[in-house]
Amino acid sequence: MLYVYAITADHGPEDMEPLPEGILPDTPVWRIASGGLAAVASPVPDHTFGAEALPAHLEDVQWTRARVLGHERVVCALLPRATVLPLKFCTLFSGEEALRAALSAHKKTLEQTVDHLRGAREWGVKLFVEARGPDPRAPEPVGAGAGAAFFRRKKEEQQARAAAEAALDRCVVASHQRLAAHARAAVANPLQPPQLHGQRGKMALNGAYLVDLQAEPAWRACLSELERTYADEGVRYALSGPWGAYNFAGGGLVRA
Protein backbone atom coordinates (compact mmCIF):
# COMPACT_ATOMS: atom_id res chain seq x y z
CA MET A 1 0.00 0.00 0.00
CA LEU A 2 1.20 3.53 -0.81
CA TYR A 3 0.53 6.72 1.11
CA VAL A 4 0.74 9.71 -1.28
CA TYR A 5 1.66 13.19 -0.01
CA ALA A 6 1.71 15.29 -3.15
CA ILE A 7 2.05 15.55 -6.90
CA THR A 8 5.09 17.51 -8.04
CA ALA A 9 6.51 19.01 -11.24
CA ASP A 10 9.41 21.21 -12.36
CA HIS A 11 11.98 19.17 -10.47
CA GLY A 12 15.48 20.58 -9.99
CA PRO A 13 18.75 18.90 -9.02
CA GLU A 14 17.96 19.44 -5.34
CA ASP A 15 14.92 17.16 -5.74
CA MET A 16 17.31 14.21 -5.58
CA GLU A 17 18.39 15.16 -2.05
CA PRO A 18 16.94 12.92 0.69
CA LEU A 19 13.52 13.86 2.02
CA PRO A 20 12.61 13.57 5.72
CA GLU A 21 11.09 10.37 7.02
CA GLY A 22 7.54 9.73 5.95
CA ILE A 23 4.18 9.31 7.60
CA LEU A 24 5.52 6.61 9.97
CA PRO A 25 8.90 6.52 11.75
CA ASP A 26 11.73 5.25 9.54
CA THR A 27 9.42 5.17 6.52
CA PRO A 28 11.20 6.12 3.26
CA VAL A 29 9.76 8.65 0.84
CA TRP A 30 9.78 7.78 -2.87
CA ARG A 31 9.28 9.88 -5.97
CA ILE A 32 7.34 7.92 -8.62
CA ALA A 33 7.70 9.69 -11.97
CA SER A 34 4.96 9.76 -14.60
CA GLY A 35 5.77 11.97 -17.56
CA GLY A 36 6.50 15.48 -16.34
CA LEU A 37 4.77 14.80 -13.03
CA ALA A 38 5.70 12.70 -10.03
CA ALA A 39 3.86 11.30 -7.05
CA VAL A 40 5.66 11.56 -3.73
CA ALA A 41 4.72 8.49 -1.68
CA SER A 42 5.70 6.11 1.10
CA PRO A 43 5.03 2.40 1.52
CA VAL A 44 2.73 1.80 4.48
CA PRO A 45 1.41 -1.45 6.00
CA ASP A 46 -2.13 -2.63 5.33
CA HIS A 47 -2.59 -3.50 9.01
CA THR A 48 -2.25 0.23 9.84
CA PHE A 49 -3.65 2.06 6.81
CA GLY A 50 -5.99 -0.55 5.37
CA ALA A 51 -9.72 0.20 5.15
CA GLU A 52 -10.53 -1.95 8.18
CA ALA A 53 -7.69 -0.73 10.42
CA LEU A 54 -7.43 3.00 9.64
CA PRO A 55 -10.70 4.26 11.23
CA ALA A 56 -9.69 2.92 14.64
CA HIS A 57 -6.25 4.55 14.40
CA LEU A 58 -7.79 7.89 13.44
CA GLU A 59 -9.82 7.85 16.65
CA ASP A 60 -6.50 8.07 18.53
CA VAL A 61 -5.89 11.83 18.70
CA GLN A 62 -2.17 11.56 19.45
CA TRP A 63 -1.57 9.03 16.67
CA THR A 64 -3.49 11.16 14.17
CA ARG A 65 -1.69 14.35 15.19
CA ALA A 66 1.69 12.68 14.67
CA ARG A 67 0.63 11.42 11.24
CA VAL A 68 -0.71 14.85 10.19
CA LEU A 69 2.59 16.43 11.24
CA GLY A 70 4.48 13.78 9.29
CA HIS A 71 2.39 14.47 6.19
CA GLU A 72 2.97 18.22 6.48
CA ARG A 73 6.69 17.73 7.15
CA VAL A 74 7.12 16.00 3.79
CA VAL A 75 5.00 18.56 1.90
CA CYS A 76 6.95 21.48 3.41
CA ALA A 77 10.25 19.82 2.49
CA LEU A 78 9.07 19.63 -1.14
CA LEU A 79 8.13 23.32 -1.47
CA PRO A 80 11.66 24.65 -2.23
CA ARG A 81 12.35 21.78 -4.64
CA ALA A 82 9.45 21.72 -7.10
CA THR A 83 5.96 22.91 -7.92
CA VAL A 84 3.83 21.07 -5.36
CA LEU A 85 0.20 19.99 -5.58
CA PRO A 86 -0.40 18.78 -2.00
CA LEU A 87 -2.87 15.97 -1.47
CA LYS A 88 -5.34 15.43 1.32
CA PHE A 89 -4.29 13.62 4.46
CA CYS A 90 -4.61 9.84 4.02
CA THR A 91 -4.59 9.68 0.22
CA LEU A 92 -3.93 5.96 -0.25
CA PHE A 93 -3.44 3.53 -3.14
CA SER A 94 -3.19 -0.24 -3.14
CA GLY A 95 0.18 -0.11 -4.91
CA GLU A 96 2.30 1.51 -7.60
CA GLU A 97 0.19 0.13 -10.45
CA ALA A 98 -2.99 1.73 -9.09
CA LEU A 99 -1.16 5.00 -8.44
CA ARG A 100 0.26 5.15 -11.98
CA ALA A 101 -3.20 4.42 -13.39
CA ALA A 102 -4.63 7.36 -11.44
CA LEU A 103 -1.82 9.65 -12.60
CA SER A 104 -2.51 8.68 -16.19
CA ALA A 105 -6.30 9.02 -15.89
CA HIS A 106 -6.09 12.48 -14.30
CA LYS A 107 -3.02 13.70 -16.21
CA LYS A 108 -4.70 16.68 -17.90
CA THR A 109 -6.41 17.94 -14.74
CA LEU A 110 -3.25 17.52 -12.68
CA GLU A 111 -1.18 19.41 -15.25
CA GLN A 112 -3.71 22.25 -15.30
CA THR A 113 -3.62 22.48 -11.52
CA VAL A 114 0.17 22.47 -11.49
CA ASP A 115 0.12 25.30 -14.04
CA HIS A 116 -2.17 27.25 -11.71
CA LEU A 117 0.19 26.73 -8.74
CA ARG A 118 3.49 27.24 -10.53
CA GLY A 119 5.52 30.19 -9.24
CA ALA A 120 3.21 30.91 -6.29
CA ARG A 121 2.88 30.02 -2.61
CA GLU A 122 -0.06 29.87 -0.22
CA TRP A 123 -0.17 32.18 2.79
CA GLY A 124 -2.77 32.29 5.53
CA VAL A 125 -4.12 35.37 7.29
CA LYS A 126 -6.45 35.12 10.27
CA LEU A 127 -8.08 38.23 11.70
CA PHE A 128 -9.01 38.35 15.38
CA VAL A 129 -10.93 41.00 17.30
CA GLU A 130 -10.91 41.57 21.03
CA ALA A 131 -14.39 41.85 22.54
CA ARG A 132 -15.09 45.22 24.12
CA GLY A 133 -17.88 45.36 26.68
CA PRO A 134 -19.43 48.36 28.39
CA ASP A 135 -17.25 50.52 30.61
CA PRO A 136 -17.30 48.78 34.03
CA ARG A 137 -16.48 52.10 35.71
CA ALA A 138 -19.75 53.71 34.62
CA PRO A 139 -21.95 54.14 37.73
CA GLU A 140 -25.36 52.55 37.88
CA PRO A 141 -28.16 55.15 37.70
CA VAL A 142 -29.93 55.79 40.98
CA GLY A 143 -32.72 58.04 42.23
CA ALA A 144 -35.47 59.67 40.19
CA GLY A 145 -35.27 58.78 36.54
CA ALA A 146 -32.99 55.81 37.22
CA GLY A 147 -35.24 53.45 35.27
CA ALA A 148 -35.26 55.64 32.17
CA ALA A 149 -31.51 56.13 32.45
CA PHE A 150 -30.99 52.37 32.73
CA PHE A 151 -32.94 51.66 29.55
CA ARG A 152 -31.25 54.55 27.77
CA ARG A 153 -27.85 53.10 28.64
CA LYS A 154 -28.90 49.65 27.44
CA LYS A 155 -30.03 51.16 24.14
CA GLU A 156 -26.75 53.05 23.77
CA GLU A 157 -24.79 49.87 24.49
CA GLN A 158 -26.83 47.99 21.88
CA GLN A 159 -26.21 50.76 19.35
CA ALA A 160 -22.50 50.72 20.17
CA ARG A 161 -22.34 46.94 19.65
CA ALA A 162 -24.16 47.26 16.33
CA ALA A 163 -21.78 50.01 15.20
CA ALA A 164 -18.76 47.93 16.26
CA GLU A 165 -20.07 44.88 14.37
CA ALA A 166 -20.67 46.98 11.25
CA ALA A 167 -17.15 48.44 11.52
CA LEU A 168 -15.70 44.94 11.91
CA ASP A 169 -17.62 43.72 8.86
CA ARG A 170 -16.17 46.60 6.82
CA CYS A 171 -12.69 45.80 8.12
CA VAL A 172 -13.01 42.11 7.21
CA VAL A 173 -14.31 42.83 3.71
CA ALA A 174 -11.66 45.48 3.05
CA SER A 175 -8.86 43.29 4.41
CA HIS A 176 -9.80 40.28 2.29
CA GLN A 177 -10.35 42.35 -0.85
CA ARG A 178 -7.07 44.23 -0.52
CA LEU A 179 -5.03 41.10 0.18
CA ALA A 180 -6.79 39.25 -2.65
CA ALA A 181 -5.96 42.10 -5.06
CA HIS A 182 -2.26 41.25 -4.63
CA ALA A 183 -2.81 37.48 -4.96
CA ARG A 184 -3.35 35.09 -7.85
CA ALA A 185 -6.30 33.54 -6.01
CA ALA A 186 -7.93 33.89 -2.61
CA VAL A 187 -10.51 32.15 -0.46
CA ALA A 188 -12.23 32.97 2.83
CA ASN A 189 -12.48 29.71 4.76
CA PRO A 190 -15.01 28.97 7.52
CA LEU A 191 -14.21 30.65 10.83
CA GLN A 192 -12.70 28.47 13.56
CA PRO A 193 -13.99 28.27 17.15
CA PRO A 194 -11.66 29.34 20.00
CA GLN A 195 -10.92 25.75 21.03
CA LEU A 196 -9.47 25.14 17.59
CA HIS A 197 -7.58 28.36 16.83
CA GLY A 198 -6.35 28.84 20.42
CA GLN A 199 -5.95 32.61 20.06
CA ARG A 200 -7.22 35.55 22.07
CA GLY A 201 -10.41 37.10 20.80
CA LYS A 202 -12.93 36.07 18.18
CA MET A 203 -11.86 35.03 14.68
CA ALA A 204 -13.43 37.25 12.03
CA LEU A 205 -11.46 36.19 8.91
CA ASN A 206 -9.77 32.93 7.95
CA GLY A 207 -8.24 33.79 4.61
CA ALA A 208 -5.91 31.88 2.29
CA TYR A 209 -4.02 33.58 -0.54
CA LEU A 210 -2.09 32.13 -3.47
CA VAL A 211 0.62 34.73 -4.01
CA ASP A 212 3.12 34.96 -6.86
CA LEU A 213 6.70 34.85 -5.61
CA GLN A 214 7.38 38.21 -7.30
CA ALA A 215 4.27 39.73 -5.70
CA GLU A 216 5.05 38.65 -2.13
CA PRO A 217 6.79 41.93 -1.13
CA ALA A 218 3.75 43.97 -2.26
CA TRP A 219 1.37 41.51 -0.60
CA ARG A 220 3.29 41.65 2.69
CA ALA A 221 3.37 45.45 2.48
CA CYS A 222 -0.42 45.44 2.04
CA LEU A 223 -0.78 43.33 5.19
CA SER A 224 1.46 45.71 7.14
CA GLU A 225 -0.63 48.67 5.96
CA LEU A 226 -3.81 46.92 7.13
CA GLU A 227 -2.23 46.32 10.53
CA ARG A 228 -1.45 50.02 10.86
CA THR A 229 -4.89 51.08 9.61
CA TYR A 230 -6.83 48.98 12.10
CA ALA A 231 -4.38 48.99 15.01
CA ASP A 232 -6.65 51.14 17.19
CA GLU A 233 -9.80 49.09 16.54
CA GLY A 234 -8.92 45.99 18.53
CA VAL A 235 -8.08 44.05 15.38
CA ARG A 236 -5.12 41.67 15.15
CA TYR A 237 -3.80 39.84 12.08
CA ALA A 238 -2.04 36.46 12.31
CA LEU A 239 0.11 35.52 9.30
CA SER A 240 1.11 31.91 8.62
CA GLY A 241 2.94 30.13 5.82
CA PRO A 242 4.11 29.54 3.27
CA TRP A 243 2.09 26.34 3.04
CA GLY A 244 1.39 23.73 0.46
CA ALA A 245 -1.44 25.20 -1.60
CA TYR A 246 -4.18 22.95 -0.21
CA ASN A 247 -6.86 25.60 -0.73
CA PHE A 248 -6.06 25.86 -4.44
CA ALA A 249 -5.18 22.26 -5.34
CA GLY A 250 -8.58 21.30 -6.75
CA GLY A 251 -9.82 17.75 -6.37
CA GLY A 252 -6.35 16.28 -5.98
CA LEU A 253 -5.88 12.65 -6.93
CA VAL A 254 -8.42 9.82 -6.69
CA ARG A 255 -8.43 6.21 -7.75
CA ALA A 256 -8.77 5.69 -11.46
Rank of each mutant, 00 (worst) to 15 (best):
V125W: 01
V4R: 00
F89L: 15
L92A: 04
V44Y: 04
P45W: 10
L239K: 12
Q214P: 01
E227D: 13
Y230V: 02
P18D: 10
G133E: 08
E130S: 11
L99T: 05
V211Q: 03
R118H: 13
L92K: 11
P13K: 03
A66W: 03
K126G: 03
A105E: 06
A163C: 05
A105V: 01
F93D: 01
F49Y: 15
P18L: 11
V75W: 00
A174F: 02
L179E: 02
R121H: 11
L2N: 09
G147C: 00
R137Q: 14
E97K: 10
R100Y: 05
P43E: 15
L103M: 15
D15L: 13
A149T: 02
L79G: 04
R161P: 05
T229L: 15
A221G: 13
A102Y: 04
A215I: 01
Q158M: 07
E72D: 15
R31L: 11
K107S: 13
L69Q: 14
L85F: 07
A185H: 07
R153D: 06
V61H: 08
A82W: 03
Q192E: 14
A120L: 02
A6K: 00
H176I: 03
A56N: 09
V254G: 09
T8C: 12
V129P: 04
D212L: 07
R121A: 14
K202W: 05
H116E: 13
G207I: 00
R153N: 04
A221N: 08
G147Q: 11
P193Q: 12
E165S: 07
T48N: 04
L196W: 04
A208W: 03
A186R: 03
S240A: 15
G95N: 14
Q214S: 14
F248C: 05
A9W: 01
V75F: 05
V142E: 15
D46I: 09
V61D: 13
